[in-house]
Design a protein around this nucleic acid. Structure first.
Lengths: 323, 323
DNA sequence: CACCGTTACGGTATCCGTAAGGATT
DNA sequence: AATCCTTACGGATACCGTAACGGTG
């Protein structure tokens, strides 16, 4: 069995079971892919792909299991390379962060500024999307870490590290009646049209629950995935905005006022997400600690260890002694 | 990078960093091992082993990480082979169970009898030891599953599936005064010398706690790891035995009487343990379900999925496209 | 007919074992 | 002096790309 074969098989699966395009993506010849796939199938004794005549049409049942394991192996090979990089080019590399607009725009800038100062040679990329998308991107290994609220569905293979609460604020234009209210209540808010995050975003259940508890139904007139968009429409007088508290900056948002709503809506939690069994570069640990000081390297390792890692297997090693 | 290299490196680590014996174990030449280890080190850019002149003396820090990952890869390669076996030789293979004397002797026989009837071509081996040992053996991959009470230290990389309670009984010889007691109490037991399991066995904390709660200290005169040994000494009149309820068989143990102690000592739980990310043969699932009917294949998979598995990584695959 | 996967073949690079050479204990 | 790792060398193997072939839609 060769790593090449695992690579080929995974690549074929990723390219709609098309050997030719897979070969192209692998910068190799198409007959070579065909041959190695067959060699692997022969060695394992089972077909991975279902062929109709001379066309690959689907994945067999054992093929599913094989692809999953093969993918894990390739991920680990990548991890090995990362270990090398980590010790030779300590301060150089890439860091891909999957996050939402709110974090990318209002929380991460300060952290990333500090980070880039310390690690000027690390190329940081942000992958912006909904919380669910962020978690998926981490799960698939496209991003190193997620910074987001919790996903709607619990993501397997990903370790979630709670960071801090993410409180809400109510944004209104100048002179809005809500500014005169002595004590802000859910009832008071419910009287106005509401602009808030799209339902693909986390923490919305808590938002609706707060209204439901009072027997109210919020009149949500507009949703967006973007705090800035919400602010724009609030400024236009289309409604009151309910956004993350951090999204309001008194100096910048001169057309708006912010009212603390942390007591009204249960705070959702900010998490950092890491793919299980992923080797993290030293600077990634540092980034995490900059973001959430309590998440030291030891704390992160500990959380990962109790979730995904696995130790070497004596038996597996012994079983392969014969070449 | 080649799988061979990973195998070599792991084997060297397992053989006290001795290349020669590692080479022997791998059925290859010693210079070959030396060369491939260096090749891998060169490819990754870091030393895995520390050399004093021409002697390998220890593992470097990156080496530690590399060995861990390499071991995981080799385990997965083994998993791939298991997939093949599972679909070609469905009913043939091996099943290694790590367990304690009590389970091996009193619980598993009935299950294994049924199992062997259904899978005559599966070679079952029992690896007997303390609970901690059982878990370690599963963790290392030497055994497929553990059947045991909980370990003293939580084992990472292992999925624990609760099966059922494991209640205690008090064993006494015929004519023992305890047989005349109306309601068995901890106090009554404390009046006699006690024979029970060795402290390396689980559930002992619950045993001592029951006494401590009454301000008593049990007079443990003898400990053993083996219910049969305990029974022998009880029969000799050396004390009262406190053992797992299942270890008493009225028909066989004619010289003894059993008193239910399930109310006196908190029941410890029986667990099945599986190594995270281990591919399980079909018959292994069947064995588990025979042992604990509620642990269906779906239930087991689900528990494993939320603990260890990992999906293929697009990024890792893409990063390796260039050969 | 265009696309796609398999088979056949030959050159090349890689791999591995043998033999000899320094270091360390 | 014995053990252990490294270097050097040569032969066999296996790998991979090119070219031609056979199905499929």
């Amino acid at each position: 069995m060769k790593l090449q074969q695992l690579r080929y098989v995974c690549e074929v699966a990723r390219h709609n079971l098309n050997l030719s395009t897979a070969a192209e993506a692998l910068f190799t010849s198409q007959p070579g892919v065909s041959r190695e796939v067959r060699n692997l199938e022969e060695e394992l004794g089972v077909d991975i792909f279902v062929r109709h005549g001379k066309r690959v049409v689907s994945v067999t049942e054992p093929g599913q299991a094989i692809l999953e394991i093969a993918g894990r192996v390739l991920g680990d090979i990548e991890n090995l390379k990362q270990v090398g990089q980590d010790f030779t080019q300590r301060d150089k590399g890439e860091l891909t962060i999957a996050t939402t607009h709110t974090y990318a725009r209002y929380v991460l800038p300060q952290v990333l500024q500090r980070f880039s100062q310390q690690y000027p040679a690390v190329r940081v990329s942000l992958r912006q999307g909904s919380p669910d998308q962020s978690w998926d991107v981490v799960k698939s290994g496209e991003a190193d870490i997620a910074v987001s609220t919790e996903p709607t569905k619990a993501p397997d293979h990903v370790v979630m590290l709670p960071c801090c609460g993410c409180e809400r604020a109510v944004l209104v234009p100048h002179g809005h009646p809500l500014l005169k209210v002595k004590k802000l209540t859910v009832e008071a808010i419910a009287a106005y049209p509401i602009i808030t995050y799209d339902s693909t975003f986390g923490g919305q259940s808590k938002f609706y629950r707060a209204f439901a508890e009072k027997g109210l139904e919020p009149n949500v007139v507009l949703t967006a995935i973007d705090s800035d968009v919400i602010k724009t429409y609030v400024e236009l007088g289309m409604g009151v905005g309910i956004v993350a508290k951090v999204a309001y900056d008194r100096k910048r948002d001169t057309g708006l006022r912010s009212l603390d709503a942390s007591k009204l809506f249960a705070a959702s939690t900010t998490y950092i997400g890491i793919r299980a069994n992923n080797y993290l570069r030293g600077y990634t640990y540092d980034f995490i600690e900059m973001f959430a000081p309590h998440l030291t390297r030891a704390a992160v390792d500990d959380a990962m260890r109790t979730n995904g890692h696995r130790a070497p297997s004596r038996r597996a090693v012994a079983a392969q002694s014969g070449r």
